[in-house]
Amino acid sequence: MTTALITGASSGIGTVYARRLAARSHDLVLVARATDRLNKLAEELRTAHDVTIEVITADLTDTAQLNLVAERLRADPPIDILVNNAGAGLSGGFANANPVALENLLRLNSLAPTLLTAAVLGGMLKRGHGSIVNIASALAILPEYADGIYAATKSYVLTMSQSLNAEVGQQGIYVQAVLPAATRTEIYERSGGDISKVPDVMEVDDLVDAALIGFDRKELVTLPPVPEEADWNAFEQARMVLARGFMNAKPAERYRS
């Protein structure tokens, strides 16, 4: 029996991950701010699947509460799967952004998954196995499509996943970055948006089911709405071609005049 810890488990993507992983007979640790929702979900899953469910109420933008979750990740029973799902959006661009809101978004979308990953990684490496799932966004590679820093926070999550895979992927640790496009969750309403104005919205159940197929296939990057895997492979190949240019010790000719 393995145990998965899911952040942002009280709604949307996190809730569906909880249901799907419980159905796979994983014990769960559910983390979110909404205690009532977490308890209701925990009771549902205990009844339906006879699994052990822990509930941790935590606001991951608060350092003390984030540390409580990090402590659980270092404790027993060990966490075999970490799903870094908790995240938020922020409407508007840089010009009129509230500095506190910017900091909170960075804390939730970027700092929290970083510190939680660091907390769980040591134990996984000692045991020689473990999985870390990071929910990023298609905007990680399409920053022009979003105002403000949301895309940047998700680009960080993608880059962190790729870097972590390069570091520990050969030591029994599986890392997956999931890049949803528009998905029917509460993030739009919470950030002041209107999902009814967004075209081609994927249902959250479809998104998670696709992400879990990518998980089972051990994909590093899973892009549920992208029809052709070859398109992502071509993108990665182009990136490696560009990288060859970084090996030059002199500036390119076009920068010498």
Rank of each mutant, 00 (worst) to 15 (best):
T3Q: 11
L5Q: 02
G8Q: 01
G8H: 00
V16Q: 01
Y17H: 10
R19K: 13
L21H: 00
L21A: 00
L21F: 05
A22L: 01
A23H: 03
S25I: 00
V29W: 09
L30I: 00
D36P: 01
R37K: 15
L38G: 09
L38K: 10
K40E: 15
E43V: 03
T47D: 14
H49D: 07
D50Y: 05
V51W: 05
I53V: 15
E54Q: 15
I56A: 09
T57A: 13
L60Q: 07
A64G: 04
L68I: 08
V69F: 02
V69M: 01
E71F: 01
R74Y: 02
R74T: 12
L82I: 07
V83D: 04
G89Q: 11
S91D: 12
G92Y: 11
F94G: 07
F94N: 08
A95G: 05
N96D: 15
A97L: 12
P99Q: 11
P99L: 14
L106R: 02
L108Q: 05
N109P: 01
L111I: 13
P113S: 05
L115D: 00
A119T: 06
G128A: 05
V133F: 10
V133Q: 02
A138C: 06
I141A: 11
I141K: 09
L142G: 06
L142V: 05
P143T: 05
E144V: 06
D147R: 13
G148Y: 08
T153K: 08
T153L: 02
Y156Q: 01
L158Q: 02
N165T: 06
A166V: 01
A166Y: 06
V168R: 06
V168Y: 12
G169A: 03
V175L: 13
Q176I: 05
A177G: 06
V178H: 07
V178N: 03
L179D: 03
T183D: 03
T183P: 02
T185K: 12
E186N: 14
Y188P: 04
G193W: 08
D194E: 09
P199N: 09
P199M: 06
V201E: 11
M202T: 11
E203W: 03
L207D: 10
L207I: 03
V208G: 04
A211H: 03
L212S: 05
I213G: 00
G214M: 01
D216T: 10
K218M: 08
K218E: 12
E219M: 02
V221W: 06
V221H: 04
P225E: 06
P225Y: 09
V226N: 04
A230N: 10
D231T: 14
W232M: 11
E236Y: 04
E236W: 04
V241S: 10
L242S: 13
L242A: 15
M247D: 15
M247G: 14
K250C: 06
A252D: 13
R254L: 12
